Simulated scan of single mutants.
Amino acid sequence: MLAFFLATIALVGAQKNGQFDQHYQFGNLHQPIDKAVIFDCGSNPDRAIRNPKFVFSRDDLELPGNFTIIDAEVEVAKPVPRPLYGRIDAWRTIFLFGGAASTIQLGCFGLTGKDFGIGSCDYGELCGLLDLNAPVNNITGAPTCWTEAIDLGIPEDQCTCEGISPKVYSLSNWQKTVDLTDLESGVLTFLAQGDYELRLTATDASGAEQACIGIRVPVKEYEDPNATGGWLFGRKKRSAKLL
């Protein structure tokens, strides 16, 4: 499951109410997004993964730049089934003169040297991806797990879907910095300034929904007042400095 969540970078502020739930209509914005929101869009009452809650250092995503995950929490309501297939659907909206919204669903943009992309992409069987990409202990050579997963309480020697036991996983005062200052130019062009909606879904072998996480986030370009030349997002390109 970690490959599914780590494959998508998002800034989010936890919120759950009648507006942001399984009835949310993706790709249908009528006004600009004023702050980032993550919510559970799941409709299957027997889904394995639910109730994501995150606190981040800011309410938007600035590229290039970085942000900090302050707190994180997600509930695993039952054993995670295998196989588990992941998909992300993404929409971008810009608001034209007069306030009219123009929305497109993004295609899948491949990343150089990576076997996954960004945008609206299928991620394949997530448990298998987790198995293939689990780190190895440099001393013993035995399979281990990511520090983040161990901090969440997943046993070091069980970095598999089967090792994710049902419970609420949380990290308080995590203060995890995510650095996006070195993104390749193609990604920056693909992730142009605008308002983004993402739907992260995971389904089992029968097609039943096991997770649905919705994200709304405004994306803007980092502006370096000392940089000139070039164009990015239809504006002057800025240098990739830390925030």
Rank of each mutant, 00 (worst) to 15 (best):
M1C: 08
F4D: 00
L6M: 06
I9G: 04
G13K: 00
G13W: 04
G13S: 10
Q15L: 15
Q19G: 11
Q22R: 15
H23K: 15
H23G: 13
H23V: 13
Y24T: 11
Y24H: 14
F26C: 04
G27K: 03
G27N: 04
Q31N: 05
Q31K: 11
A36S: 15
V37A: 08
I38W: 06
N44M: 08
N44P: 05
D46K: 15
A48Q: 03
A48I: 05
I49Y: 01
R50Y: 13
P52E: 05
K53M: 09
F56Q: 09
S57D: 13
S57Y: 14
G65A: 07
N66K: 08
D71K: 06
E75V: 12
V76C: 01
V76I: 11
L84P: 00
Y85G: 00
I88L: 09
D89K: 14
W91F: 12
W91Q: 06
R92Q: 15
R92L: 12
R92N: 15
I94K: 13
I94V: 14
F95Q: 05
L96N: 12
L96E: 10
G98C: 10
G98N: 11
A100D: 07
S102I: 09
I104V: 13
Q105P: 05
Q105E: 12
F109M: 10
G110D: 14
G110T: 08
T112P: 01
G113W: 03
D115Y: 04
S120C: 07
C121P: 02
C121R: 01
L126R: 00
C127K: 00
L132P: 00
A134M: 09
A134G: 10
N138E: 13
T140F: 12
G141N: 14
G141W: 12
P143V: 04
T144R: 00
T144I: 03
E148Q: 11
I150Q: 07
I154F: 02
I154C: 03
D157I: 12
Q158F: 01
Q158G: 01
E162V: 04
G163C: 02
G163P: 01
S165H: 15
P166G: 14
K167Y: 13
K167D: 10
S170K: 10
L171N: 11
Q175Y: 14
V178E: 15
D179R: 12
T181W: 07
D182P: 01
E184C: 03
F190A: 11
F190T: 09
D195V: 04
A202W: 02
T203W: 00
A208M: 13
E209Y: 10
Q210T: 06
G214P: 02
I215E: 01
V217I: 10
V217Q: 02
V219K: 02
K220I: 14
E221P: 00
E223F: 06
E223T: 13
D224H: 05
D224M: 05
N226M: 05
W231D: 12
L232Y: 11
L232E: 14
F233Y: 15
F233H: 15
A240Q: 09
A240I: 04
A240M: 04
L242D: 04
L243F: 07
